[in-house]
Design a protein around this nucleic acid. Structure first.
Length: 268
DNA sequence: ATGTCATGGACGCCATGA
């Protein structure tokens, strides 16, 4: 079985690239992030033509996550346990954002997550990020009972200094701070394993490169798209890689897909 | 480090978020 995750930076703008990629990579399960559209705008029919069903959690212009599956989809759950919202400075009410959706596909329980960016250390969004990660932990704690299990997506955290192109450039940034990394450690402590993809080029398994300043060609990247698998599922992993080709060419997302092949057969 | 995108609202540009 092939399981993948991809922040597509608008599923509508990326539809030609997404359909092309599905046709060649042929994942059984694909977790999508940054749909940037509501469920109404989601390209359900085009994906169904390729044999994929979808569990969608989207509300409009920002965020949005989905699980695609060609091995069945059931028990869809939208949102986290005790999920926090984000309250912009000028808003009266905090708004819940579509950043997490879970589904059972072909005997595997998967969650597609888009962790808040955090913007700047000390910004209200950074505090929201840490609170959101605590809710993710509470959700995983419950959902992990349905193993094999994995939570995949854009975590907006580089787990180690080796996962950023220049640690010095991130000295005062989000994505690398001890509280963010501690939140990842607490997820792993529940019984999850960071499935690190093999390096393809430059000996780095980065998954994200800024659109600006030729970052991709200079390999100024980060590994922030992660696959956190239950121990049993991690044991069944036969290969894991970043599909850098999906970051090349015309009209790419700024993220590349992470692809994981697992062998779930009893003898596997 | 900041040379790019994508979206949506009031328009052939700006604000927002990443």
């Amino acid at each position: 079985m092939r399981i993948a995750t991809w922040n597509v930076n608008s599923v509508v703008a990326r539809l030609p690239r997404l359909l092309d990629w599905l046709g060649t990579a042929e994942p059984d399960i694909l977790c999508l992030q940054e749909l940037k559209t509501s469920a109404d705008g989601f390209p359900t029919d085009e994906l169904a033509d390729l044999g994929y069903e979808a569990a969608v959690h989207g509300t409009g212009r920002w965020n949005g996550v989905a699980v695609l599956s060609r091995v069945g989809i059931a028990d869809v759950r939208r949102g986290l346990v005790d999920e926090p919202g984000f309250q912009p400075e000028d808003a009266l009410l905090e708004a819940h954002e579509p950043r997490a959706v879970g589904a059972s596909c072909g005997g595997v329980r998967v969650w597609s997550v888009y962790v808040p960016n955090g913007r700047e250390v000390g910004h209200p969004h950074y505090d929201y990020k840490l609170r959101w990660l605590q809710a993710l932990r509470a959700t995983v704690q419950v959902e992990l009972a349905a193993a094999p299990f994995a939570v995949l997506g854009d975590f907006n955290i580089a787990p180690t200094d080796a996962d950023v192109w220049d640690p010095a450039a991130f000295a005062t940034s989000t994505h690398v701070t001890p509280p963010e990394r501690q939140a990842l450690a607490e997820l792993r402590a529940l019984g999850l394993v960071d499935v690190v993809p093999r390096a393809m080029k430059h000996d780095t398994p980065y998954t994200y490169w800024d659109y600006r300043a030729g970052a991709f060609h200079k390999n100024m990247g980060m590994r922030i798209d992660l696959v956190y698998a239950s121990t049993g599922l991690a044991d069944s992993v036969r290969d894991a890689y970043v599909d850098r080709d999906a970051r090349k060419g015309t009209g790419p997302s700024d993220h590349a897909p992470v692809v994981v092949d697992v062998d779930l057969s009893p003898a596997g």
